[in-house]
């Protein structure tokens, strides 16, 4: 009962947010609605027992991709109103394309038959129920044992990506005035402060 209610809450908010993403006037609002949509989609995954995908969705999409979008939208100052000028004109075509896609999806899903051989193969290598092994645990068991080679290989690829990015972009410029706090703290008074004996009324 509660599950169903929660499902409908997440689903409705996701769809509403999706709608708002394309209709909001302010592009920044669009991105914020997109983030909300991601959060709710993550909730839907959680309800399905796919907690790993749900976490990844929040970490990768919300944490990185959407924030990147936000930066891009704010920095590029895109005027969406101009881009949206032909909205009404192109609406019929868009609706037609959407309808065709919908019909195609229906035909695919109604005509879909899983080959019996595949079912028997799946039965042989049955995936344990979500209540027995958690997604994250199952993935961890595979990645760090069976696929440790690929895990390490991907690690090398990421390391290389980092090295490459630094090689191609980092440059040490001359004449940049930078604050070096350590140097400032380490300045001894004897070098920097000069004590001058001033006779009274004499001035310096």
């Amino acid at each position: 009962m509660i599950q169903t209610l929660v499902f409908y809450m997440f689903a409705i908010i996701t769809i509403a947010c999706g709608f708002m993403v394309i209709t909001a006037r302010n592009p920044v609002h669009s991105v914020l609605f997109l983030i909300l949509a991601f959060f709710n989609a993550a909730g839907l995954f959680l309800l399905q027992g796919a907690e790993f995908i749900s976490m990844i969705l929040v970490i990768v999409y919300v944490g990185a991709v959407a924030v990147l979008f936000l930066f891009v939208v704010m920095m590029l100052d895109v005027n969406l109103n101009e881009m949206r000028r032909g909205f009404v004109k192109y609406l019929p075509i868009g609706l037609a394309v959407g309808a065709v896609l919908l019909v195609e999806l229906f035909t695919i899903f109604t005509a879909w038959v899983v080959e019996p051989a595949v079912i028997s193969v799946n039965a042989a290598t049955a995936t344990p129920a979500a209540s027995e092994v958690h997604n994250t645990e199952a993935l961890g068991n595979l990645i760090y044992t069976h696929y440790v080679y690929l895990f390490m290989g991907s690690g090398m690829v990421l390391l290389l990506a980092m090295v490459g990015a630094i090689v191609l972009t980092l440059r040490s410029r001359d004449g940049v005035k930078k604050q070096r706090i350590m140097d400032q703290i380490a300045r001894p008074a004897s070098e920097e402060v000069e004590l001058v004996k001033v006779s009274s009324g004499g001035g310096i």
């Binding site: 290989g153 090398m156 690829v157 290389l160 990506a161 090295v163 490459g164 090689v167 191609l168």
Partner: peptide
């Protein structure tokens, strides 16, 4: 392996 090789070649 292919990506590791290609990525360093791009750089």
């Amino acid at each position: 392996g292919l990506e590791l090789q290609s990525l360093s070649l791009y750089v």
